[in-house]
């Protein structure tokens, strides 16, 4: 029990009497990979924001005391023209050059000339890597990851998950990854939480992802979706 790094109990989130998260409970252990799976509009990003303490909620969200959380956001940089170099972005976290290089190496960037580039002009794949590297600075024990597929082509997506698996092994991190992409679960998850306002299923992927829970999560779409990805 005390291996838990996060305990969520009876979490409720509502906006103007519109319930977005309904009585949700789950745990995250050290070094665990939890995938939060659900269709668009299921409340996944809202849940992450609640975990980060950005929005108000009812119920209990208990992080292990002193835990360091790295966060990789989905939406970033409203203004592409901002004159902010990658190096300056890293230095916001008061990091030294060595740590910066180490974090970039961990996400597969060896060419350090990227540090001098404007952050608004690097490719979306590179930006995703830079954001993960930023999340790794300061050696967090947990990484929260919002929908890494957004804005990235399939090839890039593939490497991002391999990358996460690699980082997870190297650094013994717990990771919470939010996605609507079912294939990610099989590649990556120790446990999966299917979310559609409430927990539709929760547990190890093989045990809980029976046809019925997926049907309840996605409705009829899921068969087609699964067929396309294959095994």
């Amino acid at each position: 029990m005390n291996k838990n790094i996060l305990e969520v109990k009876n979490l409720n989130i509502a906006f103007n009497s519109n319930k977005v998260i309904d009585n949700l409970s789950f745990n995250l252990e050290e070094k665990e990979n939890l995938v939060i799976l659900g269709p668009n509009g299921a409340g996944k990003t809202i849940l992450l924001k609640a975990l980060l303490g950005v929005i108000p909620f009812e119920g209990e969200i208990k992080w292990k005391s002193g835990v360091k959380i790295g966060y990789v956001p989905q939406k970033f940089l409203p203004d592409k023209g901002i004159p902010l170099s990658v190096e300056e972005f890293f230095k916001f976290k008061k990091t030294g050059y060595e740590e910066m290089r180490e974090a970039l190496r961990a996400v597969g960037i060896k060419d350090l000339s990227i540090l001098k580039n404007k952050i608004g002009v690097i490719s979306s794949g590179q930006l995703q890597r830079v954001l993960i590297a930023w999340g790794l600075l300061g050696n967090p024990q947990v990484l929260l990851f919002d929908e890494p597929t957004a804005g990235i082509d399939i090839e890039g997506e593939e490497t991002i998950y391999n990358l996460l698996a690699k980082i997870e092994k190297e650094r013994d991190l717990a990771i919470i990854l939010v996605t609507h992409d079912l294939s990610v679960v099989y590649k990556f998850a120790d446990s999966v939480l299917c979310l559609n306002k409430k927990a539709v299923c929760y547990g190890a992927p093989q045990e809980v992802l029976g046809g019925d829970s997926l049907n309840r999560l996605y409705g009829g779409e899921i068969k087609l979706y699964k067929h396309n990805h294959g095994h």
Binding site: Y71, P78, I82, F92
Partner: peptide
């Protein structure tokens, strides 16, 4: 600057 590029990023820090 962090607050202006991503509120979530700011709050999580």
């Amino acid at each position: 600057i962090i607050s202006s590029i991503s509120e979530d990023l700011a709050v999580s820090n």
